[in-house]
Design a protein around this nucleic acid. Sequence first.
DNA 1: CGCTGACCCTGACGGC
DNA 2: TGCCGTCAGGGTCAGC
Length: 270
Amino acid sequence: MPELPEVETSRRGIEPHIIDTRVSRVLIRNRSLRWPVSRAVDRNLPGQTIASVTRRAKYLLINTENGSAILHLGMSGSVFIVDRDTPARVHDHVDITFDSGKILRFRDPRRFGSLHWSKQALQHKLLKSLGPEPLDNYFDGDYLWTRSRGRSVSIKQFIMNAKIVVGVGNIYASESLFLAGINPKRAAGRVSLSRYQKLAAVIKDVLGKAIQAGGTTLRDFYSGDGEPGYFAQQLEVYGRDGEHCHYCNSMIGSIVQGQRSTFYCKQCQT
DNA sequence: CGCTGACCCTGACGGC
DNA sequence: TGCCGTCAGGGTCAGC
């Protein structure tokens, strides 16, 4: 469900409510997420004060002086702030309660999300081999071109590979390739440097604009403050198969790559 | 090492 | 109305 802009929107939504606030209690109703939730989470977090909430790739890092909770939202996860005594609904798996009386609640119907505790979050095995952040300066066309030489995988799957670059999920991969005019089926090793420069630029642009819009709400994404994201209104191809391209008026098509749907314009994308 | 496909899970939706 | 198939914004892992 959430890609980088949605995770960033969630981060911005919750941080002001919990920063400099002490955790009084952690309640884990269901430990069977993507990986079983270790007791280390509820053993270490209570009593800690939140120093910051940061993001690496699609992971939210809830940082304290002594370690971090590492939260991934998976496909259907969300975090939000509720007041004490707000009844939990089904699929509300984790409550982190603060001295303020507020609760940071994690909800995840499909349970593809995860929660870990780590003293050194960036060195955690799930995070340490991740590629660069797309909004970092050293992520650029030269980098993509260099990494892609000799690779036969499709450009769509290449840019969704978190070892290459993080945070580009299924929506923004299709959108970026459309904006760069690149056919998603093209082999990554057969994309020119100049096209990679265009691609890196549009990835930065589309992710930045999606963050500004508060993310993309397709059905169930809401920020920590309960606001939907408005980026869906700006989508060019995602979810638009059978409709007309905004630029050339030909029909948007869809294919399946790596068991994920890809949307593209055969006319505009070569 | 690179690539492909199976798999984890629940809910929403469309067709019949 | 109800049942069934399909699909969904994520990621890991085994096997070749």
